[in-house]
Amino acid sequence: MAVCEKHKELYEELDAYIDQVKDKPGILIGVLHKAQELFGWLPQEVQEHVAERLGVPISEVYGVVTFYNFFATKPKGKNQIKVCLGTACYVKGADRVMERFLEELGVKAEEVTEDGLFSVHPVRCLGACSMAPVVLVGEKDFYGKVTPDMVSKIIAAYRRGGSQ
């Protein structure tokens, strides 16, 4: 398999991680977490690689990847915008916030914008319900009490490349 320099490095890092944890029971999900952290998503080749290194059937890896919402089988935007549609957020107007994000970015849910910068994902409760409606960008940037009018400002902050 031909891999470019960048990918080679990523595979090396993944293998180093696998070697560390290989003997622990039930580690497949942990390895996939690591792989997704490195590659951003889980392409077919990466799944095959993990299966081979852990000595489990590819069908098992594929089954696990598709079962869990967290694992992505398609590339995602550089900035993933997660809009909570849990009940507490929903009654506070989260659906209108979601609509506005899709409108402003001109995409459908789960689609990546042409410049690769953004994708918008409806998610379930993020455990920050007292700040409903809640939007999470990436892993750590929480926005609370979001109104549709705040949407363009949030997007702009990431267009400039920074976070917040």
């Binding site: 849990g86 009940t87 507490a88 957020c89 409760c125 455990g127 319900c129």
Partner: peptide, 11 residues
Amino acid sequence: DEGEPGTFKDR
């Protein structure tokens, strides 16, 4: 694994 929408006490 607290996943119940509206619940954030465990967190």
